[in-house]
């Protein structure tokens, strides 16, 4: 029996190596089937519950608009520009950190950044900007310029036991190569900035972009950078900027 398995394995290995691209990649038809599932995204329920949480803890869309000092009419376009440098914070922040501050202001104990309820609320808040083009401005001020530079550095720096960087799998020269049946995505063209938070099918849960970065780091054996840290927010700035101009569509649906 043992040899049988060994032979089967080596043949499979041989064929996967020589035809790796064709044999283990999904077809466009398969991909279309998964895309259709967006119609009934389980995360729709989480977005709805995020809307209730925002109402309860932050005074809903109106409360958020007031806190951000914009009109409710301008709120979608304003949200489409996150992460942003905000004077009150004296730093570049993501939507989640804004929500924490607003919860605190309203005398509620803020949800942790990694809390599922926070993910739900972030997803709803970003969905306010659905169909609006991402308008992050990395040249808006020196803080955004610095965040962009730090984000690029974080993206490009090789770390961990395998010496991998985000760039190792997401540089233009490897995009499209098939790794474990999946083509390595072009984060910009595939609108990473506009389609997270998303439902992760393999995790059966809603995840944010920063949380996805953590999953990537963990799998690549890199020390995981904390959510909301300057490096993590900077990474979100850098990756979101790659999708600038593309329409926000929350919740996304990912493998």
């Amino acid at each position: 029996m043992k040899t049988g398995i060994k032979i089967a394995l080596s043949i499979a290995l041989l064929s996967s190596l020589s035809f790796g691209g064709e044999q283990f990649a999904m077809s466009d038809a398969d991909r279309a089937m998964y895309a259709e599932m967006l119609d009934n995204n389980p995360a729709d329920i989480m977005v709805e519950s995020g809307s209730e949480l925002l109402e309860e803890y932050c005074g809903g869309d109106a409360g958020l608009a007031k806190f951000l000092n914009v009109s409710e009419k301008d709120l979608p376009a304003y949200i489409a520009g996150f992460p942003r440098y905000l004077e009150e914070f004296k730093m570049v922040v993501g939507i989640d950190q804004v929500l924490q501050a607003l919860m605190h202001k309203n005398s509620h104990k803020p949800f942790a950044l990694k809390d599922g309820k926070m993910f739900d609320m972030v997803a709803y808040t970003k969905s306010i900007a659905n169909d609006v083009a991402i308008n992050i401005d990395v040249n808006a001020n020196k803080h955004m310029k610095e965040a962009y530079a730090l984000g690029q550095k974080t993206f490009d720096t090789k770390r961990g036991g395998r010496g991998l960087a985000c760039l190792s799998c997401h540089s233009p020269d490897v995009i499209g190569s098939v790794l474990r049946t999946q083509p390595l995505p072009d984060l910009g063209a595939q609108n990473a900035g506009g389609t997270w938070p998303a439902y992760r099918m393999t995790k059966s849960s809603l995840r944010t972009l920063q949380r996805r970065f953590q999953g990537c780091m963990k799998n690549a054996l890199l020390d995981v950078i904390p959510l909301g840290s300057p490096e993590m927010v900077a990474l979100e700035v850098y990756v979101t900027d790659k999708s600038k101009g593309q329409a926000i569509a929350i919740p996304g649906l990912k493998r």
Partner: peptide, 16 residues
């Protein structure tokens, strides 16, 4: 019967 030829993962396989 519509199913993917290759499933992205075994946990969520769309069937129509």
């Amino acid at each position: 019967l519509k199913v993917p030829e290759i499933a992205e993962n075994g946990a969520v396989v769309p069937v129509t």
